[in-house]
Design a protein around this nucleic acid. Structure first.
Lengths: 183, 183
DNA sequence: AATGCCATGTAACCGGTTACATGATTTA
DNA sequence: TAAATCATGTAACCGGTTACATGGCATT
């Protein structure tokens, strides 16, 4: 039950329409909670029915007509409640690690290329995060809210750093693995 | 579509019944691909229908009766195909990071306790991984398969190390954050 | 008038989660 | 023989994914 709260957070930062939210989920918030436009429209309907948000009264809505939402006090309260409520970490699910484990049993033929591809993707993501860091968090003056958002970005940077290092190491292992592919 | 392949990998390592698989998913394989017994039974049925596995012919099955499965050649081939096939990394979804981002907007009251709890959980997991490393991968002799499985374990160790460090740092930030909780 | 894009939405499916049911075997 | 545990299974639900539909607006 995190998508509604991701949307509430985004709307708190700035009232938006469904499509604007979708675009913003492709950037910042979506870096750690992705969502498609179908999910977002569905969830906006629920949030409005629950009295957590409302459409901005400026314009009359119709199909194909832009419709912007803002957070109501009840929505803000719900977001604060959820943010403070204790939640267990979800057990991790990583396909690549699973594939490596399978490769240990059925042979490693073919997987190396994809490791290289993943390494490249993670390097790009890391570069993107570091760009954002330089742009949004120049050294020096940071307000209390900035420090929290910087902390979140730092987690992204550290995670991508971990993946690039680990994949590099994995490829080195493959390099001196005996070439008895296809057992 | 990873659960069937996780099960195939587990069955390749050792033919098992549904409950035995469930227990093994609580350990090793479940560390990066968790599954409940309901999922496993459902999937075993599909895998058998697809001709990837079969019940060990020794015993006749009935409800409440143990039923063990082994992988057929077609199953092994499917596992090799899947392991080598290129797959995009899934966009990450992390509730804790999302909550921190929400906290940057609605205030940080209450979240600190849960950060401490998460830190403790990740420290325990790290300790567990390091125990497994010492037990299963003593320095020195490692076959090629061992090196791959060690590599996977290393990813787990590195990830838990990242989380413990990041959470420690986050808690330090909270310590010198101005105590204007509840904005 | 046709094309393309902006914007909102519907419907079907699929995998994971939770709760519950039932038979077989062991132990008190 | 009652209770606990082992073992397999059913059913309902829920969130995320994919494919498609529809209306409005701008450009050619």
């Amino acid at each position: 039950m995190s998508l509604p709260h991701a949307i509430l957070t985004a709307l708190m930062e700035k009232p938006s329409s469904g499509l604007e939210l979708t675009r913003r989920f492709d950037r910042s918030i979506g870096y750690f909670w992705s969502a498609t436009h179908q999910q977002i429209y569905r969830e906006l309907g629920k949030l409005e029915a629950d009295g957590f948000i409302r459409t901005l009264p400026t314009e009359q809505p119709a199909r194909g007509q832009k419709k912007s939402y803002e957070v109501l006090p009840a929505g803000r309260a719900e977001l604060a409640r959820w943010s403070a409520a204790s939640q267990d970490p979800k057990p991790m699910r990583d396909v690549l690690l699973l594939r490596l484990r399978a490769a240990a049993v059925v042979g490693t033929a073919g997987i190396e290329d994809d490791l290289r591809r993943h390494l490249d993707l993670h390097r790009r993501q890391l570069a993107e995060y570091e760009e954002i860091e330089q742009r949004d968090f120049p050294p020096g003056k940071e307000g209390p809210e900035d420090r929290l958002r910087h902390l979140v970005l730092q987690a992204g940077i550290d995670l991508e750093t971990f993946w690039t290092r680990w994949l590099t190491r994995a490829l080195e292992e493959f390099a001196d693995l005996p070439t008895e592919r296809n057992r």
